[in-house]
Structures are given as structure tokens and as C-alpha cells.
């Protein structure tokens, strides 16, 4: 952990063994969902040993993410468990109690490399526009609720709860998600000294000419509209 990742040779050595983009997605997924039971618990990482395999480098697997969106106990000691937590809060989780295995220290060290740092911040914004957009998260919630709803009266009766209580819990979760996705832009600005967001639209002429790569994502369905930041 002492070698500078601003040195290209050092960075390339690490990059050959360790998939930093997987770490970035792992951190962003937990930051977006305000996870409070990770790093000190529930962190999985693996690599394949097949010389012809596609996962030779160390990468991450999500594990036990129920302590999210304001639910459960703050085992990790995150500084803010509310929907208004800054997106960069995980970058400060470097104590032995919060992150005994040093995943965040690895992230912060890799960010010494300018290309990696730009990837990290761009990836946050890309995923806020897509996976963690309000539309996508609420759509995912609604699809799960629709699947569970027909059975929840019987389930609640089995475990001494009520259907009405479940509906109330779903509403609490929905409110947290909406507060989270609608306020992330403020945190992105303050964390990384950016301004915006500004709406952009990607299109092509003719419209079926092909996709457009924007940062870490390729948008094949055009026109595509998103929100991006200035000041970098």
C-alpha cells in the first residue's frame, strides 16, 4: 500500500491482477443505496484460476445488502444513514473498524492515478443516470412489490404481522429511494467540486446509424437524454 498509483508501471502491475472497475462498482452500489453493513462485514471478492477463463483478476460480488435504504443497523459506522448522505462518504471509511481489510484504502490509492480517478467519478454519474436513476430504482421496486403483493396477506398472517404494515414499509422504502435519487446531484457537486447537472441529449443522423459511447456506457437506443456535470 506504499507504492504510488500515479506511477504508470505501478498502476499497470496492480491493474493486471486486480479489477479496479469492479471495486468502483462495488463502492458505488453500496454508496448509492446507503449501505451500513459492508466493508467490515459482507464483502466478497474472488478470481478465477482457469487460464482460459474470463475472470482472472480479483473482482467483487455483492453480498447481504439488506442494511440499505435506511433499514437495519449501522454496523460499518457510516457517517450518515439518511437518504441525504454524500455519495463520497465511503471514501472516508478508512478506520480499522469500518474497513479492516482496506478496500477503501485501495480505492483511494488507485485514485492517485488520474485516469482511474476520472473513471471513478464518471462512473458515479453514469450509474446515477441509469442503474440508480429514480425511474430505474422505482421501476425495480414496483416490479418486486407486484410480485410479492398477492402473497403478503398470507405471509404477514404466518409471521404475526399485517398486510397494512407491509404496505407502510413499502411506502417508507419508496420515500427513501425517491429522496436519495432526487438529491444525489447536490452531493456529486459538493464531493467533486462540479456544477450542474445539465441535460444532454445524444442522437444520430440517421437515428439508426449506431450507438454512442459516453464515458463508461454505450447508448444504443437513441435519442438518449441524461444529466451531466461541468467544472471538471
Amino acid at each position: 500500500m506504499t507504492n504510488s498509483m500515479a506511477n504508470a508501471a505501478n498502476y499497470n502491475y496492480v491493474n493486471n491482477l486486480y479489477d479496479g472497475t469492479s471495486l468502483v462498482d462495488y463502492v458505488i452500489a453500496n454508496a448509492m443505496t446507503v449501505c451500513s453493513d459492508w466493508l467490515n462485514y459482507n464483502t466478497g471478492w474472488w478470481r478465477g484460476m482457469d487460464s482460459t477463463g474470463t475472470h482472472r483478476r480479483w473482482g467483487y460480488i455483492l453480498w447481504d445488502n439488506d442494511a440499505t435504504f435506511g433499514h437495519y443497523i449501522n454496523y460499518t459506522g457510516i457517517p450518515n444513514t439518511s437518504a441525504y448522505a454524500d455519495i463520497c462518504d465511503p471514501e472516508g471509511l478508512t478506520t480499522i473498524n469500518s474497513d479492516p481489510e482496506g478496500h477503501i484504502q485501495v480505492l483511494n490509492r488507485l485514485r492517485q492515478n488520474p485516469d482511474f480517478n476520472q473513471f471513478y467519478i464518471s462512473r458515479i454519474i453514469d450509474l446515477w443516470n441509469t442503474v440508480f436513476s429514480c425511474d430505474n430504482m422505482i421501476g425495480q421496486l414496483d416490479s418486486i412489490v407486484a410480485k410479492l403483493d398477492p402473497e403478503m396477506s398470507a405471509h404477514a398472517n404466518r409471521w404475526n404481522g399485517t398486510y397494512a404494515e407491509w404496505l407502510l414499509n413499502v411506502d417508507t422504502l419508496r420515500t427513501f429511494i425517491l429522496n436519495r435519487c432526487n438529491n444525489l446531484a447536490t452531493g456529486i457537486n459538493s464531493c467533486y467540486s462540479l456544477n450542474g447537472p445539465y441535460e444532454i441529449t445524444l442522437t444520430a443522423d440517421p437515428i439508426s446509424a449506431g450507438g454512442i459511447k459516453l464515458n463508461t456506457l454505450v447508448h444504443d437506443s437513441l435519442p438518449w437524454t441524461g444529466s451531466y456535470f461541468g467544472g471538471w
Binding site: N42, G44, W45, W46, R47, G48, M49, D66, E101
Partner: peptide
Amino acid sequence: ITDRINTICNTSRHGE
């Protein structure tokens, strides 16, 4: 994932 894994590290205390 068609790979053979040598290690999965997971610091979970227990299933919940």
C-alpha cells in the same frame, strides 16, 4: 462464470 475459483472471501457473520 466458467472459471474455477480458488478463493471467495466473505466476512459475513451469519446468514440473516
